[in-house]
């Protein structure tokens, strides 16, 4: 319990530091948020009045502490472009992004670990080289380009999958999804709205595949390297000498020992997925945090940008925390520090 508190308090410190960095970037650099808010046609007097309303006339340190206090109380400010509460914008859009991340990481783990293990099994042979090429290609692929290519091929030429969006408009209109958890695909499954669910899954394939490419590459390379390392250890040699079947050695002994580092890499790749959604959602017009983030960045919507940055830092922290928990479960030697 004490360890948990220690983790939480250090996490809080990191978040305060992270908010400080974003705040500094947003305020010290000479771009005028008030002007961004009212547009270029406003008079100087208008801008001045707005600066007072937004509290921008006060000294920077005071502005920072005010911001920190408000953020802590759940007031994340108002988006300059949509004029909505940033927190509401974020909570409305978060489920779509989380579903996307969920499917992407699912793809990446299933394909990445399987191919990595296969590569280790066929080490040095043709299959190994092929998997190696696919994996390196995965980590070298610009997500925005891969997304466009998939759209071009599977939506444009072959017509197998829809090019953009989360659901077809007609489907959402004919079979409205009742809100239970807020997660659209999950909700349509829970409420038995299967036409919406299949439509949602159909829309999910290309974006999730695009987003998973990088993590897939990381995971399969890591899985291969770890399997090989474990397979070269003495206890495996001894098991072989005792005549255990290759299947048991491979899947029971080696894979289990290769898992902990794979979990670490999964955590790391979720971090990449967080920013990856920016580009993937942009390409697929996905109504999540990523497309909101890109729009906010382009329009210098600083309250939205600060909110999203903070959210991403929280997401990163939570992921690392969960990874540590799983790690401790998988490997008794790793205690919680």
């Amino acid at each position: 319990m004490r360890i948990l508190w220690k983790r939480l308090s250090s996490a809080l410190l990191v978040l305060i530091g992270a908010s400080f960095i974003t705040f500094t970037l947003a305020r010290v650099i000479p771009s005028d948020p008030a002007l961004a808010y009212i547009g270029p046609k406003a008079t100087a007097a208008d801008a001045e009045r707005l600066r007072v309303t937004l509290g921008l006339d006060q000294p920077i340190p005071i502005q920072y502490f005010k911001y920190l206090g408000q953020t802590f109380h759940g007031n994340w400010g108002y988006s300059l472009s949509t004029k909505q509460s940033v927190l509401k914008e974020i909570t409305d859009r978060l489920p779509a992004t989380l579903e996307l991340i969920f499917f992407a990481i699912g793809f990446a783990i299933i394909f990445g670990v399987t191919l990595g293990v296969l590569a280790a099994k066929y080490r040095g042979r043709f299959q190994d080289s092929l998997i190696r090429i696919i994996s390196i290609a995965g980590v070298s692929m610009p997500a925005f380009w891969f997304g466009l290519l998939l759209q071009l091929l599977f939506a444009g030429r072959l017509g197998w999958f829809p090019a953009t969006g989360e659901f077809d408009i007609e489907v959402k209109y004919d079979n409205p999804i009742h809100k239970v958890t807020g997660f659209p695909i999950l909700d349509s499954l829970i409420t038995g709205n299967f036409s919406a669910a299949t439509n949602g899954l159909h829309h999910m394939v290309l974006p999730a595949l695009t987003l998973s490419a990088y993590s897939f590459g990381l995971l399969s390379r890591m899985a291969r390297a770890n399997m090989l390392e474990v397979l070269s250890q003495d206890h495996i040699k001894v098991s072989r000498a005792y005549g255990l079947s290759e299947r048991i050695i491979f899947f029971k002994l080696a894979l289990r020992n290769a898992l902990p580092p794979i979990v670490t890499v999964t955590g790391l790749s979720i971090a990449y997925l967080i920013t990856g959604t920016f580009f993937v959602e942009q390409v697929y017009n996905w109504p999540g945090i990523g497309s909101f983030a890109v729009n906010s960045l382009i329009s210098i919507d600083y309250p939205a940008i600060m909110g999203i940055t903070l959210l991403a830092a929280i997401g990163y922290l939570v992921t690392n925390f969960i990874v540590d928990l799983i790690q401790a479960k998988l490997d008794p030697r790793v205690g919680m520090r």
């Binding site: 990191v14 978040l15 530091g17 992270a18 960095i21 974003t22 970037l25 947003a26 650099i29 771009s31 971090a271 990449y272 967080i274 920013t275 920016f278 983030a293 960045l297 382009i298 210098i300 600083y302 940008i305 940055t309 991403a312 830092a313 997401g315 990163y316 922290l317």
Partner: peptide
């Protein structure tokens, strides 16, 4: 560590936005 507490690329995106 503070700089590393952001997911990769996020800090660059934010910085370039405010730098122009």
């Amino acid at each position: 560590e503070l700089f590393l507490s952001f997911p990769p690329l996020l800090l660059s995106l934010v910085a370039v936005t405010f730098l122009g």
